[in-house]
Write a protein that binds this DNA or RNA. Sequence first.
DNA 1: GAGAAAAGATGACACTTGTCAGCTTTTAAA
DNA 2: TTTAAAAGCTGACAAGTGTCATCTTTTCTC
Lengths: 229, 229
Amino acid sequence: MEERCENCIVRKFNALRAMSKEELKAVSDSKVSRKVKKGEVIFDEGEKLNGIYCVRGGVSKLAKLSPNGKDQIVKLASKGEVLGQRSVVAEENSNLSATAVSDMEMCFIPKEAIISTLHKNPDFTYEVLRHMAHDLKEADDVIVNMSQKTVKERIAEALIYMKNNFGEDKEGYLALVLSREDIANVVGTATESCIRILSEFKKKGLIKTSGKRMAILEARKLQDLADGF
Amino acid sequence: MEERCENCIVRKFNALRAMSKEELKAVSDSKVSRKVKKGEVIFDEGEKLNGIYCVRGGVSKLAKLSPNGKDQIVKLASKGEVLGQRSVVAEENSNLSATAVSDMEMCFIPKEAIISTLHKNPDFTYEVLRHMAHDLKEADDVIVNMSQKTVKERIAEALIYMKNNFGEDKEGYLALVLSREDIANVVGTATESCIRILSEFKKKGLIKTSGKRMAILEARKLQDLADGF
DNA sequence: GAGAAAAGATGACACTTGTCAGCTTTTAAA
DNA sequence: TTTAAAAGCTGACAAGTGTCATCTTTTCTC
């Protein structure tokens, strides 16, 4: 027997918290829990989404294929975040693909329950709106970073971001383990350039690595680097 | 005597169209019309906004100052678009600055009228949400372009964008006249690089110029360039 | 209309970054 | 455990782009 949305703690982090008991009950009755293995595709760019995915655990990358054949990772989504929200709201096919970068646990919620609540409950709609406003601000910030910062600055920033948003394990390694290629796709550079710069950071003692795992040793210096000093 | 919002055609292009007669009346009673001269700043980054600006005519650039001291233009807004919407919805200070790039005519609407409607009229909230969803998609696309395309491709794209979104005058020149510096700030490059590439386009017969005015001669070829061919 | 200021243009040069090629290490599968 | 595949790494080199300096043209102001 699966947990019901009414009792789900993850809901506190997203717009579902603004739903009424009845609405939540309807959502819970129609939702489908699903486990996704690392590397598995949740949905593809251009796909018609019939609902949203509420992330209960694990991390997903939202990416878009550029004309030159490279994936650009636009956002990393984890616990509490909702995938496909934008597409369902706009009634458009998905603009991004979603892929699990770690094993994930999520709930699929058919769009009908969401859309009908959007039409009836202004508190919920407002809450979704506020979340989207936040996403939009973040996206604008990414645009500025992408166009004005060097690759080295962006990689330093990505490392800090990973530490702040996904934390570290007991040994001090970043909890989120990404391949060099994924990191390169986050900052929009070639995999080789990414590797080279990470090697440089390692040489300078800013980070250390153990297999694919990475640990930040000098957060302050990395932050300064990211800020262009 | 100024025009009332109820009769304003510009409203058709934005979320205000979902307001009820009464709500619209309240907005109209509290709004302040304002003319802004080219180059004038409408609001600054970090500023607290007490309302939104509904653009009736002219064009504005929304920009953000990057740590290295360069302005990145994130969006160009014209007739029908609403400035400051994101900040008012999120109840945050502005993330971007807004500056007129041509003489403008706009209405300032105090945030109270907007926020109270957001709480009461789900149709309006939904409509604002849909617009923001659209903006978010556009922002994601910009992220991909910025990180994956060359400066030349981005400039070609910017020219096409200017033609499609702001049109041409009778002589075939782009209706929106931007300085080389502004174009550079849209595509995120140095002014000199921008000038150099525009000169190259001119030499190749893709565009022609007359003072600051520019005309697109070979839209197809520019489009191919923008797409990386 | 003259003079000043802003914008546009161009060359030289250095630095950043991407590409290709080859090699080593790690991971996963048989 | 062996083997194959994937990921990580490094060097060489070319192309792309930013910076600085200088000059010309356009625009604005008095």
